[in-house]
């Protein structure tokens, strides 16, 4: 059974945004990772993707509600989607206490808590400030 890897929200954004300078680099990396790993995302990632792709402060030409809803369906059909379960909340509580996680960093910690729930040790992300802080400790 292949190892698992978790794709964070910005990877999905760069994958679908053809004009992004990261688009081709991320696409090449995905091809490499696809052969080695089982690719996972989570409900949180799908939700955040929808937030970013419809946000006119973040994108010059944001998607419509219909467009983003179709995208969410597509991502769910090509990657495994982790649900947040009771164990995820227990993992999150542990991380919050262990690393004194606060404020918006709790959203990052929840990604780590979800990964732990599904025994996923690898994360693919362009920027991981929040998670790096947790993993270094």
């Amino acid at each position: 059974m292949p190892d698992k890897i978790f794709f964070d929200t910005n990877i999905l954004v760069y994958l679908s945004s053809q004009e992004s300078p990261f688009h081709l680099r991320v696409l090449e990396k995905v091809k490499e990772l696809f052969d080695k790993y089982e690719i996972w995302i989570s409900r949180q990632v799908l939700r955040e993707y929808a937030v970013v792709m419809t946000n006119s402060s973040l994108l010059q030409k944001p998607l419509s509600s219909d467009e983003v809803e179709k995208d969410m369906e597509k991502w769910g059909s090509i990657f495994r989607v982790a649900d947040e379960i009771e164990e995820t909340t227990i993992n999150l509580r542990e991380l919050i206490v262990l690393f004194d996680v606060k404020d918006k960093n709790i959203h990052d910690a929840n990604i780590r808590a979800t990964m732990k729930t599904y025994n996923i040790e690898r994360l693919f992300n362009i920027k991981l400030k929040g998670l790096q802080k947790i993993q270094r400790n």
Binding site: S17, Q18, M53, L59
Partner: peptide, 13 residues
């Protein structure tokens, strides 16, 4: 994989 032309992405996401 969804394909869109959303223009420049502001910030680091």
């Amino acid at each position: 994989i969804p394909k869109h032309k959303v223009g420049k992405i502001q910030g680091t996401l």
